[in-house]
Amino acid sequence: MRKSVRKHGIIVTTKTVTESFTMCETFERFMWFKQSEGLAPRTIEEYRIHYQWLKR
């Protein structure tokens, strides 16, 4: 369901998100975005290390 709200002459459209993801799926999406940004391999590996720590 979309709802339009007019603020100062600009129409802002909001959208209700009905999808839900597990923590693992969310992390994999996050990693995909970070890799597409071209981050250094070490940074990507640090993200994975921190995620493993969080899961424990």
Rank of each mutant, 00 (worst) to 15 (best):
T26W: 04
V17P: 00
I10Y: 11
E25N: 02
M23C: 04
G38I: 06
S20T: 07
R2W: 04
I11H: 08
E19Q: 09
R6S: 09
K55S: 02
I44D: 08
I11D: 13
T16G: 00
V12Q: 09
C24E: 11
H8Q: 11
M31F: 05
K3Q: 03
Q35G: 07
M1N: 07
S4K: 14
F27Q: 04
T26N: 08
K7C: 05
I10K: 15
P41Y: 06
V12Y: 12
H50Y: 13
Y47N: 05
R56G: 05
Q35Y: 14
K7L: 10
K55Y: 01
W53K: 14
T16M: 04
K15L: 12
I10N: 13
R2K: 04
H8E: 13
T18L: 10
E37T: 06
E25T: 02
T22Y: 01
S20I: 01
G9F: 01
F27W: 06
S20F: 04
T16F: 01
E46I: 10
S4R: 15
Y47A: 05
Y51T: 01
K7H: 05
R6N: 10
T22G: 02
F33P: 00
S36A: 15
M1Q: 07
W32V: 12
T13Y: 13
R56H: 03
E45S: 14
E45H: 12
E45Y: 11
I44Y: 03
T14P: 00
F33G: 11
Y47Q: 04
S4F: 07
T43E: 08
R42I: 09
H50A: 14
A40F: 08
K3E: 02
F30V: 04
I44V: 13
K34H: 09
W32Y: 15
I10C: 12
H50D: 13
W32A: 15
W32Q: 15
G38F: 05
V17G: 01
G9C: 04
R29V: 04
R42P: 00
K55D: 00
E46T: 10
S20G: 00
F30S: 03
I10E: 14
H50T: 07
